[in-house]
Structures are given as C-alpha cells and as structure tokens.
Nucleic acid binder design. Structure first.
Lengths: 110, 110
DNA sequence: TTCTTATTTCGCAAAATTACGAAATGTTTT
DNA sequence: AAAACATTTCGTAATTTTGCGAAATAAGAA
C-alpha cells in the first residue's frame, strides 16, 4: 500500500553537483577553470571577484567538497585546478538529465 | 586599479537553474518529466515521494519559478509538464559549462 | 628568529532553505 | 447549498547558506 520510493543515488549525486553550482561565484570559478583548462590562485580570483578572501575560501571549499576542483599546494600559494575526472563524471550525469535535448543539440551545434 | 568584474548574466542563469536542481526531490521530478516526456499530477508525486503535500508544493513552485516546469490547470487537478523551451535553453547552458568534455563524450557515447 | 605573504579557519549575524500541519482556495459532485 | 477533493498558501521552527573581519596557519625572505 505504501508506494513511497527512495530517491536513487545518482539523483542525489546530481543534486550535490547542482548545489555546488548553485552560486554565481562558484559557477564562475568552475567555468574559468574549465574554459582555460589551466589552474589559478585564490589571490587571482579574489582580485577579480567582488567578494572577500574568507568568503572566496568558503566557495573553494565547497567546490572541493563536491569534487569539482582540487588544490595543489605550491607555497606560499595554493593553486586550484579542475578535478577533470570528476568533472567528466558530472558532465555525464547532466548529460543524462538533459538527454532528451541531445538530439536537438547534436543537429543544431555539434 | 579596481579589477573587480561583474559576474555576467549567463553565469547567473546557470546558477539559477543549478539552484533549482540542488535538491534531490526536484531533480527527481525534472528527470521524471524529461524521461517520460509526459505530464504528471502533484497527487501522483506525493504518493511516490517521501514528503508531504505542502512540501512538494513548494518544490514545484521553485521549479516553476526557475522556468523548468509549467502547470496546466485541469480541475480539480493541476497537471505539471516540463517547460521544454526553457529546458532546452538550460541544456545548452550546461552544455556550454561542460563543453570541455564534449569531445570526450562524443567519442565515447554519441 | 622575526617579518611578510597567501590562504584558511573561527565566530558571528543576516538571510534563505526545508519541512510540516492547519487553514484557505477553487472546482466538482451530491 | 453543502460536502468532497486536489492543491496551495500561511505560520512556524530547525537547519543551512552566505558573507565578513579577526585570528590562526604555514612557508619563504630578511
């Protein structure tokens, strides 16, 4: 009688990535790293973004927690790079979510 | 001297969609509607999801606000469908975000 | 060792999110 | 008109997120 389902793991994973990308500053950082396919420093980001250092640090922490980026210690700097392996997994998960539109996208732009 | 940038609109839009998809229940609803490419009722969802009616209603409201779904009044029911136009726009925006991985995805799966 | 530099953690406050039950809304059926 | 139904809005509470400045951390330079 109880048809309640449990939400499957892959959906929780998509929600987790989406949550990491639910703030403009974090989307900006990820896009920057993905586009340039190079790393950057917290100090470079704080100069261009309209937020304080400690706030930026928290956003970086969340992106790290979600697995989208990783930090390489390169004293006295910390260099942040895309975690390409997880980024590819995330790309596939969103690919799955938006699957219905892939035919459309393929014809139009691929 | 002030190199602070303003975060561009398209990034705010991506963050807005990501925020709408940052909760498992909302991802579940959108995936269900996208996969089946058919509509469903709030009452059907509340039977399968482990949340109350008013909570579900709030999630639907947020998905509507983000433009991912739309409701058709069909008394005494309200039928929810994917907003395909906006869903395609969202697909393109995430396509842009994950662009770097499209070569990879194309070879592997398309 | 002391100073400087880059970054993070801590402590806090304001705002937003999540969830629920109760009450309200609007429509059909009786 | 009253009852029944599906759904939403309201009021409220617990939790999480966001942001900042001050203090802490850690490495290199003086």
């Amino acid at each position: 009688m109880d048809k309640k389902i449990e939400i499957p793991d892959n959906i929780h994973e998509i929600a987790k990535i989406a949550k990491a990308l639910s703030h403009p500053v974090r989307v900006y950082i990820v896009m920057k790293l993905a586009k340039m396919s190079q790393c950057c420093y917290s100090g470079d980001l704080v100069e261009e973004l309209p937020i304080g250092r400690s706030t930026l640090s928290q956003h970086l922490k969340e992106l790290k927690y979600a697995g989208l980026i990783q930090g390489e210690i390169n004293p006295p700097f910390i260099k942040y790079c895309l975690n390409t392996e997880n980024f590819e997994i995330a790309a596939k998960q969103f690919n799955e979510l938006f699957k219905n539109n892939y035919n459309y996208l393929k014809i139009e732009e691929l």
